[in-house]
Design a protein around this nucleic acid. Structure first.
Length: 442
RNA sequence: GCGACCAUCGUUCAAUGGUAGGACAGCAGAUUGUGGCUCUGCUAACGAGGGUUCAAUUCCCUCUGGUCGCCCCA
């Protein structure tokens, strides 16, 4: 037999389709945590006067290069970028802020009453090696306040974040905070940093040599021992703040004191995105998980950098999966939907099944959560499922009942049942659930 | 981007150079229209490609995916 050399149609081998590297499924068990986080988050967002926004996942690559910063790790090695068929360079957003600011311009939102308070929730992408607490697609929630410079808002966003953690039951965290100053003091500071490192530049790693040229503050992010040693006594931002930035920072801290949020001044905190000015902060779990739950800060220049208008702004974002991880860690009880009055609707025979479909909707309209297994014929297997799902009450609608206009209401815990007229069913159920409610609270 | 380890039913854990077994879950039964306990049966897996071999799930290589460090962040 002559061998037919197989030409692979692509470099990928045939086989079952697996998820793309770093992309994962969120299954119902985890989804429950996410929904809980979303509820807590939205609750606060709405009462704090924030409104929702969603921007496209795909943006012009240039938005992030200019917005987030050319020298940042996010842009240099973590961007999920490619070209469209038309040849346009696009990038799957690695964060929200740049896109939100773009939307601010494109939709003329500077004409709306300022400041603009926006919340967001959705997937973001970073091209990295997947690892614990890190995937290529993950989800962020966050909030931005655009068009207001007052320091009280910096504090309010931190308050927003910490209140959310509190509502979720997460208490073991620290707030790290620092001020990077503005354009004015930053150039002075930058110069001071460059001057400080210059004598030692030969001893430093190649990365730092490059950083010192392109973005000197990033030198502090290096963890090579030598660079660290040298950086130990480097000038700190807080010592080079201009009058305005100094008092702004002081005010932020005073506000935080006022609302009893403990913080840790961290002069080394610079954040991975270039657009930050003045206040920056990160929230870290206390158990040294190796990653932050979230962070944020002021970005008074970003709006200007992306367009012609000027608008001060401040924001924060948090990793939703990481918050969910904390919930798991603290053993947060799994909240199921059981608290909604739930009944199981079992049907028997052709007529019973037909009537069930309608009854199902009537029950739903009356405020009940209804479970069923309409596809099954035997009453036995249907009750088995009712038992497994732990619905306290099962309704049985068979041929006989369908003809009589009645239905069996079965108490699954007591094992008792009675036949009631269909017309009185809702009433009867409401009575029963009211009873169990009072028993619970008693 | 660099390094280490891993890959068997849905989950979890076995065994094996001659194509795989248990547990849990799932499904169906144990006479007539009634769940939980028990019993019985059934379903269901060697990530993909290539090589070595009479024979590969097992050995080797590559790819894909996962886990964990480094880096960095959410």
């Amino acid at each position: 037999m002559p061998k037919e050399p197989k030409k692979p149609s692509s470099k990928k081998p045939q086989g079952p389709i697996q998820s793309v590297k770093g992309m994962r499924d969120i299954l119902p068990d985890e989804m429950r945590f996410l929904e809980r986080i979303r509820k807590a988050f939205l609750n606060i967002a709405v009462s704090y006067g924030f409104e929702g926004i969603e921007t496209p996942i795909l943006e012009d690559t240039d938005l992030f290069v200019r917005g987030v910063g050319k020298a940042t790790d996010v842009v240099q090695k973590q961007m999920f970028s490619f070209r469209t068929k038309g040849g346009d360079p696009v990038t799957m957003r690695p964060e929200y802020t740049a896109g939100v600011v773009r939307a601010y311009y494109e939709n003329g939102m500077f004409n709306l009453p300022q400041p603009l308070k926006l919340w967001y929730w959705g997937p973001v992408f970073r091209y990295e090696r997947p690892q614990a607490g890190r995937h290529r697609q993950f989800h962020q929630l966050g909030a931005e306040i655009i068009g207001e410079i007052n320091a009280v808002l910096d504090a309010q966003l931190i308050q927003f974040f910490t209140i959310m953690l509190k509502e979720l039951g997460i208490t073991a965290y620290t707030v790290e905070i620092n001020s990077l100053g503005c354009k004015v003091c930053r150039s002075g500071y930058r110069q001071a940093v460059v001057n400080y490192f210059r004598p030692d530049i030969r001893k430093m790693c190649p990365d730092c040599k490059r950083r010192l040229k392109e973005s000197p503050l990033r030198v502090f992010e290096c963890d090579k021992e030598k660079c660290r040693e040298i950086a130990e006594k480097a000038p700190q931002t807080v010592d080079h703040l201009c009058q305005e930035c100094h008092s702004h920072f002081k005010e932020v801290l005073e506000y935080l004191d006022e609302i009893d949020i403990p913080y840790h001044l961290n002069p080394k905190l610079v954040r991975g995105l270039d657009y930050y000015t003045k206040t920056v902060f990160e929230i870290w779990p206390e158990d040294q998980a190796g990653y932050a739950l979230g962070g944020g800060g002021r970005y008074d220049n970003l709006v200007e950098m992306l367009g012609e208008k000027m608008a001060p702004a401040v924001g924060f974002s948090a990793g939703i999966e990481r918050l969910a991880g904390e919930l798991k860690k603290i053993g947060a009880p799994i909240v199921k939907d059981k608290d909604i009055p739930t009944v199981f609707l079992a049907q028997l025979g052709e007529l019973g099944r037909k009537k069930s479909l309608k009854l199902f909707e009537e029950l739903r309209r009356a405020g009940f959560r209804v479970m069923e297994s309409f596809g099954r014929n035997s009453i036995k297997s249907q009750l088995k499922i009712a038992n497994r799902e732990e619905t306290g009450i099962a309704l049985i609608l068979g041929q006989k009942e369908a003809l009589d206009g009645t239905i069996i209401v079965r108490d699954m815990t007591a094992g008792t049942q009675e036949t009631v007229p269909l017309s009185k069913l809702i009433n009867e159920l409401q009575k029963r659930f009211a009873l169990t409610e009072t028993n619970k609270s008693a």
